[in-house]
Design a protein around this nucleic acid. Sequence first.
DNA 1: GCCTGATTTCTACCA
DNA 2: ACTGGTAGAAATCAGGCG
Length: 791
Amino acid sequence: MKERFWLLDVNYEVKDHNPEIWMWGITEENERILVIDRSFVTYFYLVLDEKEEPEIVLERVLERKKEFPQVMKFEPLRRNLFGKPVDAIKAYCQDPDLVAKYSKALLKIDGVKKCLEDDIRYSMRYLIDNDITPCAWHEVEVERTDEKPPVQIDQVYVATSVPKRVEKEENPSLRVLGFSMICYSERGKPRPEENPVVVLSVATSYGGERLFVVGDHSDKKVIESFIEFVRSFDPDIIIGYGTNRQDWQYLLNRSRALGIKLHVDRTETEPHTSVYGHVSITGRANVDLLDFADEFPEIKVKTLENMADHLGVMKLEKRTIIEDIDFPVYWNDQDKRPILIRFAEENTRCIMGIFEVVRDFALQLSQLVGLPADQIGRAAVGFRVEWYLMRNAYEMGELIPERRERPYIPYEGGTVLEPKPGIHENVAVLDFKSMYPNIMIEKNISPDTCLSPSEPDPPSGVNVAPEVNHRFRKEPSGFYKIVLSSLITSRDEVRQRSKSLDPSGIEYRILDARQKAIKVITNASYGYAGWIGARWYIKPVAEATTAWGRSIIRDTIEIAKHTGLDLIYGDTDSIFVIYDQEKIEEFSKITEKRLALEIKPEKNFTRILFTEAKKRYCGLLPSGQLDIVGLEVVRGDWAEVAKDIQERVLELILKDQSPAKAVKFVHRFILDLRERKILYSDLIIWKTLTKPVEEYAVKAPHVEAAKLLKKEGWDLTVGDKIGYVIVSGSGRLYERVKPYFLATYPEVDIEYYVTNQVIPAASRILSLFNVKEEELLPKSSTTLFSFVDKH
DNA sequence: GCCTGATTTCTACCA
DNA sequence: ACTGGTAGAAATCAGGCG
């Protein structure tokens, strides 16, 4: 019989050296099924030394066959590696768990240069070779089975064919369960060995909400009720915020301490950490929404409440946010405890709402890249691109290179022009769309078309990169060219198709999510090519791409000047010119003809302001909106007071065109600040820990704040954002920092904020109008007051 | 030992 | 843990100075 299913998750089991693929699916009838495939034999390659005769190496391998009882066959063949044919032996291995061991042993045989594809997990191998895609529909021939594996599922089948992809856009009706929890410790970070989970708040996609709160006894009941609820609701997807890093580990350790099995999967295992550090729950997709926060760079401090606020799920002003440090205060106070519980419930609602926003994108990205839904979020951009490439390499008969360490050698990037400082009226921004991917396509830049300096030019000819002189064969089309062209055309197709659809409909939303996913992968391809960790890394590939980019922008500037356009600024793939319809049209025509790349007007600014700095400007759009780029306003490491004042100054300069008003505004703002009329939270400075605190070479303020937190019992890891304020006192700045929730408003050194935050941010703009820093300080009696304040 | 200017370290941005 | 180019703050170094 035939079954049609949507692939949710995949894992494998090995029994007596015999592997089984387990595919967890959802049918069109909304049944949960498990399809078991026992037919797939995995393999890896031995790449042979070109100096040796392949037959002789094969003989040597076969002589030792007995040492590899699980290898069913050694098959000599030719394959391509970086576009060049190589002799290889394909070793078919019955037991996937022995691949690593066997390949290591076989590598020692004379004439075996290296082993490839021995680091690809059995379940991924199965998906790639059979073109099976997570989060997509497939059809498979199956038989019912009498076996009763210990699984929670409607139906178990054994596959008698390989699942085949079927075209169908919409997702099945997924059961989603979201949760958040609160752990109690009197002081510092809760430790699962001793501190209980006091609140566990759960919600489902059916609209149900449940709350498990600790009673008089231990939290055993809380966790047990949670497990029971998960099993009875039987979700396909479990969502949370920070669950990969925090919650699951805590629940696991806490369960262990309480003697409970955290049995929330569809078999009989517990959540376990897997590739990329994501937590895997067999038969379900465990999705941590924090992993998708990076898709929104506007969110600077990636807390659940900030993400919910930014995505319009739950506005911050409608909430009472409770800091971790205050949990015990709220928990121990009978009157305040309900507020804490409500906080947890709201967090879970935020989680449900955020998932609504990111769901389509996440599932489409999973489908495009081919990584299961629970892994895709956790996988870094480089790995997403790489999995996409690996699937394509398989299709093209290219061997997948191994991952290896390489020395880091920097190379030159894009060109940035000196801006013309000051205010300009009517400025047009022209840019090359997807410049790097298009250069790679146009010049056939690819790991497999790149010629080494010793190689002669092939008959079909070469493209030679300017400055760096790397050569790329013109024929045949390279791996990157093929992959990138198909990405770009498929995105165009998707966008074309969605044009005829109702933007509020489900199909439109899915197609829009898909085109976004395609865009993300396309735009990351150049970065991938220059990443030393990439399997397909070849420095000249990245270096040539930027070299051609520089020559293109150089030519573009020449054409612009020649056309008589007034050039204001430019960065990598764009130029800013004074608007002149006729000249721009002429310019575009010449550019496209000469450079074979499309340059398009991106936007027009009614007015735009540049300082002397590159990569920093503020433009006024015809809509009245400010487009602020690179300046303090858009940076996450300045206090809100600095950002606010700069934004107001920019508004008064660009809209009202009144530096005088702006100066006045700064005066008033400083007065308010000195009277502590500004919110305390606007004084917090946030900075990321980019390495363990002990490894810093200098005493930086945020590191010193982090050390204080550690002393208080909070453990911090790389990537954590430290929020601190500057308090009054003497000595270096780093001696006057306090984590914001350990300080009080009266302790704050307001003059630091005046001098080192507000004034510099305002002056950055106002110095263009010859306003001196001293003129930004309010005069009047307050000067005396501040003198008193300071001493 | 203190001041000053130069250099290093650090983060977060832009394309 | 995708790239290089860039700004800017703060720490730190190096050298002058009775």
